[in-house]
Design a protein around this nucleic acid. Structure first.
Length: 584
RNA sequence: GGGGCUGUAGCUCAGUUUGGUUAGAGUGCCGGUCUGUCACACCGGAGGCCGCGGGUUCGAGUCCCGUCAGCCCCGCCA
């Protein structure tokens, strides 16, 4: 059908007869001469029709064409006349002179343009999603999905070379007892019973380790029926990895090697080994567990110096066991009060009652905090005239997120320079538990994380202080992946589940099959799961997740192109033993 | 479940602040002229449920209430 791809025709083919197929990208009708820009996924090639070289039929056909029609063109590759070369275009030095043209299919006028003139805004995302095939024809979208393909291929090659097997795990599975809400799938054979779509293949990959597969990888689709965010989709793809007889170092090393290869594919830097930071340090220095280390700005502890000032707020916070932490912003005093309030608002949105600030001037300090300054306060804080101090007082669980938000807002307000464009980081030693409120414990990550043996003695006395053998991969402030060493001892796993508030019969009902497997000779094992969508979005320049997924869902978890979800006929529901209640 | 922003021609946007005669522009589309264009150029034309429903008013694209959709955020989610 074709002898060459449009974008791959070169001057060396000059004089040769070719057949090119593709879409009409644009058309320029000069009357006697007609130029077609012919597009396929490889690029764009100009085809010219003129009475001296085109058949009469071809001339007629060419005049009736419009954009997005699908055509096959037979013709001869020619260098363009010197004056007609287009240096802006990859194939701008040549064209195909049409001898015959066949219309393979007509297109109605596209609802959204595939070709966008320079400086024309993209159609609204609403329309891009509704008319997805047209949107996907655009070069940017084709390039992103091509990159995604090359990245996933590199993932498979990387793990194959390391001896991993890709093994599929079920999509129809068992509802999970905690974590996100499950998508449920009714069983017709067993009316009233349901499968769940997997939130991740977590338990299956552990079972594969127990089954002796040693090294497993899967490009796995995962489903979570939760409300959306810019960085979340209800169905998403993970690079799911698990291996037996491993230490965290093994997993981290494999992942760093993988990121080197993926960065090379994407044309960015990933210098290994990656920086590492414990969860504790990340919270202390950056107020969050996935700090954006492209910027150097760090949180500091000012409790000693600020705690002795004559401020009821500060003293009260310290007396209640809190601390005073903040950011020393070099040159920040140039910010207007309005900009400072914007930083404070960011902190408030993150849950802080407020932010205290002091502008440092040659003559002392001003602002709600500055007015309490003593003669030596500035120097003891290590601040210089022209600086701005923003501080939050209280318990760490309040001030950390507030200062994380204040840090991001300050970076934006001061337009702070980046110290690197590609900040890779491992955050390690995550706590096993988090406070579930009203005295209960919840799993910080998931209930299978191996507690650090060094903290085993704290399990009863201070469970919240128990660190897990867990690690997150962070890139430019985005969490790309998360993993851990798992418990392979059934007794310890049972103990942890019971600490999480599960009764013995619940443990048996929900995790019995896992515990039984663990008792059958489970090897020590661990792994990680990396988010493919986020990874591709980041590696293609920080675009939206929706731009690296061919057919994504909207913020309200709808598929606007296909029109899903949709109601189903009552008879189908009846066959499943389901009746729909509520307002319907 | 809650909050914010947006919705005007096929598409991108003005017009909404302060209600007032016939809602505009660019592009696309349709017709015409044009043999080296590449955002082709030029001439002419068609194209509107101002998201939808209700209300206020002599009068609503503009004000109010509700609702739908898209995006962003909180809750939720690893």
């Amino acid at each position: 059908m074709r002898t060459a791809a449009a974008g791959l025709v070169t001057l060396e083919m000059a004089g040769r007869g070719v057949r090119i197929v593709g879409w009409i990208h644009r058309r320029r009708d000069l009357g006697g001469l007609v130029f077609l820009d012919l597009r396929d996924r490889s690029g764009i090639l100009q085809a010219s029709a003129g009475p001296d070289w085109s058949s009469a039929d071809a001339m007629d056909a060419v005049r009736g064409l419009s954009v997005e029609d699908v055509v096959a063109v037979r013709g001869v590759v020619r260098p363009r006349p010197d004056a007609a070369r287009n240096p802006e275009m990859a194939t701008g030095d040549l064209e195909i002179q049409i001898t015959e043209l066949e219309v393979l299919n007509r297109a109605r006028t596209p609802a959204i343009p595939v070709y966008l003139p320079p400086e024309e805004e993209l159609p609204s995302e609403k329309l891009r999603l509704r008319h997805r095939v047209l949107d996907l024809r655009r070069h940017e979208m084709q390039a992103r999905l091509a990159l995604r393909h090359r990245l996933v291929l590199a993932v498979r090659n990387h793990f194959d070379a390391l001896g991993f097997y890709e093994i599929e795990t079920p999509i129809l599975t068992k509802p999970t007892p905690e974590g996100a809400r499950d998508f449920l799938v009714p069983s017709r054979v067993h009316p009233g019973e349901f499968f769940a779509l997997p939130q991740s293949p977590q338990i299956y990959k552990q079972l594969l380790m127990i089954a002796g597969f040693d090294r497993y990888v899967q490009i796995a689709r995962c489903f979570r029926d939760e409300d959306m965010r810019a960085d979340r989709q209800p169905e998403f793809t993970q690079i799911d990895v698990e291996a037996a007889f491993v230490q965290p170092e093994d997993i981290l090393g494999w992942c760093e090697g993988l990121m080197e290869k993926l960065a090379e594919v994407a044309g960015i830097e990933a210098a290994t080994p990656f920086r590492r930071m414990t969860y504790h340090d990340a919270m202390e220095r950056f107020g969050c567990d996935r700090p954006d280390l492209r910027y150097g700005l760090e949180i500091r502890d000012f409790t000693t110096v600020l705690g002795e000032l004559d401020s009821a707020i500060l003293r009260g916070a310290v007396e209640k066991g809190g601390r005073i932490r903040g950011l020393g912003l070099e040159g920040g005093a140039r910010l207007t009060r309005r900009r400072i309030v914007a930083v404070e608002d960011a902190a408030k949105a993150a849950g802080a009652p407020g932010l205290l600030w002091a502008k440092i001037t040659e003559n002392g300090a001003t602002g709600p905090l500055g007015r309490f300054f003593r003669d030596d306060t500035r120097t003891r804080l290590g601040l210089a005239p022209g600086d701005l101090l923003v501080a939050a007082a209280g318990p760490d669980r309040v001030t950390s997120p507030a200062l994380d938000a204040a840090r991001a807002a300050s970076i934006a307000a001061l337009d702070l320079p980046r110290t690197t464009e590609h900040a890779w980081l491992w955050v390690t030693a995550f706590p096993v538990f988090e406070d579930g409120g009203d005295g209960t414990l919840a799993a910080n990550h998931h209930p299978f994380v191996q507690p650090d043996p060094a903290d085993a003695h704290l399990l009863d006395s201070d469970p919240l202080a128990v660190r897990g053998l867990a690690y997150d991969l962070v890139y430019n402030g985005t969490e790309l992946g998360s993993g851990s060493i798992r418990m392979h001892d059934a007794a310890l796993q049972t103990r942890i589940l019971s600490m999480l508030g599960l009764r013995p019969e619940e443990i048996t009902a929900k995790f019995g099959f896992l515990l039984e497997a663990l008792r059958s000779g489970a090897p020590p094992h661990g792994g990680i799961a990396l988010g493919v969508d986020r990874l591709v979005a980041q590696l293609s320049g920080g675009t939206s997740l929706r731009d690296v997924i061919a057919f994504p869902k909207t913020t309200t978890a709808r598929a606007s192109f296909e029109g899903a979800p949709s109601p189903v006929p009552a008879a189908e529901l009846a066959a499943l033993g389901i009746s729909v209640g509520g307002d319907r």
